[in-house]
Simulated assay, not measured.
Amino acid sequence: MPSVRILEAGDPRPGPGLLATRLVGHYVEHGTAPYLANTRHRVLLADVDGQVLPLVVNDGDDSRCYLTSPYVNYISYAEDFARSVKERAVRWGLLAFIRAVRAAIPRRHLDRVVYVNHWLLATGPELALSTPQLAALTEALQARFPEHAFVFKRASAATAEEVERGDSPSRLHAIFNRQMYRWRHEPGLKPPREFRQDRGLLQRHQPHLRRLTTAEPDTVSRLGALYRALYLDKYSELNAHFTPAWFEAALQQGALEVYGIDVEGGLHYFVTCFEAGDELIGSVVGHDPALSRKHGLYRAGVSHLMRLAEERGLTLNLSSGSGEFKRKRGCTPWTEYELLGFEHLPWRARHSWSLLRGIYNAVGPRVFTALSI
């Protein structure tokens, strides 16, 4: 029988070298509000046979962020994305469909939830629990949080298939989440033209590319401004509202590597990444959109991550979005699932989760493919 322990602030901590301690230890101590302004969650740790996974607890109305609210992620954030689609007929069709889903599924049925393997970033390490471990952790969570649903982040297609088998003891269900893109250096294989062009841009910017490691006030302020310009002003206010304390922690703790590019006399681009197993995971980015287009900063930043992954012998995970851009540079698509635990809830909540799952599994992959997300 797998061993499961749920750890809170004040409990004996896992070793300081563990990724969970380095990336989310401050959330366990202080909660999310000081670091993500549009959330207020408790964060716990689950120790399953020595694997330590973050647990993010949403008690029903703790989030206005797609990272930690299933309702925002699957409905409100999707609506924001649909508004950005250029083709009018497609845009209005998507909006009508999403609004119909919104009318059918109450927020209160989805947002009382415990996230498992949630690192409070868009992409975290892959879920690596076996089927018996998933079942044991689900049982422990049901005993601790009997009124919450459970969402296990970043499950592979193989894991999703495993839990969907009728004899699976976990009573979990898989839902399509998104299309991700991964890249790995293949010795002897000629890279695409776009890859070579981006590598040239990187060489041009190399003298002005540096790793940022000190949390000086001006640096923290500039990183926050570049992040806001991209994620909040350009895309959606439903993205994470990272505070100055978040950027300070990222720079001070070092688990999240932060790289910046200076152009025209100042810092106008940054990209972050971290290692998890055999992956280098590209994470939070920020840039001045106009100067990024002018100088090719985003392209140079992606090329920098590819070079780091090649040098370290790792697979680069570039998360989701900009599918055509990533495919042209040799990335391969990979489907990410979430695992849902809701069978212990009242029937109305079970119905809402089942409806959401059915809709996204039927429609989600086709939308991502058609729009090259």
Rank of each mutant, 00 (worst) to 15 (best):
A140S: 14
V24T: 14
Q206E: 14
Y360I: 07
R357C: 12
T21I: 06
A143K: 08
A122N: 15
P132W: 13
T131D: 15
S292V: 07
V258E: 04
A78Q: 10
P2W: 01
E311Y: 03
V48T: 07
P14W: 07
L371Y: 05
P146E: 10
G330P: 09
Y35S: 07
N361L: 09
F274C: 08
V48Q: 00
M306K: 07
P365S: 07
D198E: 05
I281M: 02
G286R: 00
P125V: 06
Y71M: 07
N117Y: 08
L316C: 04
L355I: 02
P365D: 05
F247L: 09
P217K: 14
G321Q: 11
L18F: 08
T272M: 02
Q203T: 15
L339A: 06
G323D: 08
P333Q: 07
I373D: 01
P187K: 08
L340P: 01
L137V: 09
R222T: 13
K234C: 10
R42Y: 01
T123G: 04
Q133D: 12
K328R: 13
W347C: 02
R88V: 12
H109Y: 06
S168V: 09
P54T: 09
L44E: 03
T131K: 05
R199Y: 12
L223V: 07
H41P: 03
L55T: 07
E338F: 06
V43A: 00
L232F: 11
E248H: 06
A157T: 14
C273W: 00
G296E: 02
L19H: 01
V48S: 00
Q142F: 01
R112K: 14
L127Y: 03
H173M: 09
S63N: 04
A245S: 13
P346G: 11
L36F: 12
T332S: 13
W183K: 00
A155T: 03
S130V: 09
V90D: 05
L19W: 03
S354R: 15
W353T: 05
T272S: 10
R196N: 11
Y235Q: 11
P217M: 11
R211K: 12
L238G: 01
G330A: 10
P2C: 08
A290L: 14
D80C: 00
E164M: 15
L316K: 00
D218T: 14
R222I: 09
F195E: 14
G254A: 12
W119M: 10
Y298G: 01
W92F: 14
W92C: 11
T219P: 00
P106S: 09
I373C: 09
W119I: 06
G25P: 01
G321C: 10
S322Q: 13
G313L: 09
